[in-house]
Amino acid sequence: MDGYIIGTIIKAVLILAIISALAGFGTYIERKVLAFMQRRLGPMHVGPYGLLQLVADGIKLFTKEDFIPSGANRLIFMIAPMITAATAFIALAAVPMLPEFTLFGVTVRPIVADINIGILFVLGMMAAGLYGPLLAGMAQDNKWGLLGAARTAIQFLSYEVVTGLSILAPIMIVGSLSLIDFNNYQSGGIGDWLIWKQPLAFILFLIAGFAETNRTPFDLLEHEAEVVSGYATEYSGMRWGMFFIGEYTNMITIGFLASLVFLGGFNSWGFLPGGIAIILKVSFFFFLMLWVRASWPHIRPDQLMWLCWKVLMPLAVINVTLTGLVMMF
């Protein structure tokens, strides 16, 4: 029992450290990829190829003056970024990162909490993550913040429905809510991947994932041209950095979810061992998010609602119904 607790704590700390480092690294990758797609160089001057830019950014974020607007609700203003970061990391707790491996004679399962409702827990925690932007926008005494908070509420609430419904069909096929069961179901090579059985669900999940992580076609929460910075208007320094870490962690979580549910998870892929396979898949999803950001314009709020309620949700319901009918007969 004690070993289990200590192991869990070690795993949690490791995941916290690695993922927040990756989130910082993600900002560097994002800048570089966006720069290349716009025929620019991106960060170049701090370290080799600008690699130390994230260290410089970290120093800047930590040492920047941290101020709270005089009209703001101080307490809520201070805890809102922590909610974003905390829920993003708690959601990662139920995600199996890598296949089991043996280290110093101990079999390590790289998942913090293997609960049998894993996928719902991840979705629920990401749903709770909407309180970060929401409270941040409402606590700061700023109209743009309030608009950002209102957009947070409508966007996250609406797209949670699509995420849940789109992932329902794979759940019906696999018959379990545990992400490890999802992985084991697809252990027979590429032909077993759920994307071939549920292509529509995959596309819907990906679109809703973009909306839930506030990525570009749906980045209405903090779109500079419309609402100055949305919920993050008054934030600076490390508090703003926490929003950033939360957003990038959510991107990684969505990448893991999509790979585990639809793309075969961490099963070994041909000659590639499973660990490398899933890292490749998650990297692909991360790159896809940047790629889409460089390519597509973002949409209006009314188009966002139209897309969610009149296109994606009916498609998701039809998909679930068809899956049920096919499974019944």
């Binding site: 290349f36 797609m37 716009q38």
Partner: peptide, 9 residues
Amino acid sequence: GLKVTFREM
């Protein structure tokens, strides 16, 4: 659009 940006990259 995706193709164009990838080509540019």
